[in-house]
């Protein structure tokens, strides 16, 4: 075997090894690397109370309520399988609305609710002009894709 071929073979073997190693590392990371928990995760995982966590999902339609103190809102985060009621005091981002994705940072309460101290709006992968969005809304095409996979 010529030296050049030997190096080619070694190079390809190294590439394979790197690929395998990163694959293993990633599968081990699977849970830790998640940016937020979904409501279903919360239902199945060990209790998450008293830890600062992020909860992500869709804001359930018709669930946003403004409380009487004027600065607190209550809403429900859902992933179409499980639901978590959330309370948040402060200024929500512009894109925070019913039927679209949200990531809430905060803590679970013992009662099973979630108190957020920060809200992030999650944008989905669809981009369109307002007229088309209006037409789609009128045709009843739901906004279900955002936030779920």
């Amino acid at each position: 075997m010529k030296r050049k071929h030997q190096r080619l073979f070694l190079g390809l073997a190294a590439l394979g090894a790197i690929g395998g190693a990163s694959g293993l590392a990633l599968s081990a990371l699977q849970d830790q690397a998640a940016f937020f928990y979904t409501p279903s995760d919360v239902a199945t995982k060990s209790p998450l109370t008293d830890k600062a966590v992020r909860l992500g999902g869709m804001v359930e339609k018709g669930s946003i309520r403004h409380l009487s103190d004027g600065v607190t809102i209550a809403f429900v985060v859902t992933d179409n399988a499980a639901k978590v009621p959330v309370r948040f005091t402060g200024v929500a981002p512009d894109l925070f609305k019913e039927g679209s994705g949200v990531v809430a940072e905060g803590k679970f309460t013992d009662a099973g609710g979630f108190v957020a101290d920060n809200l992030l709006a999650k944008h989905d992968e669809r981009y369109m002009p307002p007229e088309i969005a209006d037409k789609m809304a009128a045709a009843g095409a739901g906004t279900t894709a955002a936030g779920t996979k």
């Binding site: 190294a14 790197i18 699977q30 690397a33 998640a34 937020f36 999650k122 996979k149």
Partner: peptide
């Protein structure tokens, strides 16, 4: 040159990060 090759391991991770994990960044458009 070896580091250059080893660094490619990161590329599929960037590409599929939005598929494998739930992220704030939206999926691929």
């Amino acid at each position: 040159a070896l580091l250059g090759i080893a660094g490619t391991a990161l590329l599929p991770v960037i590409r599929y990060s939005v598929v494998w994990w739930n992220t704030l960044h939206q999926g691929q458009s």
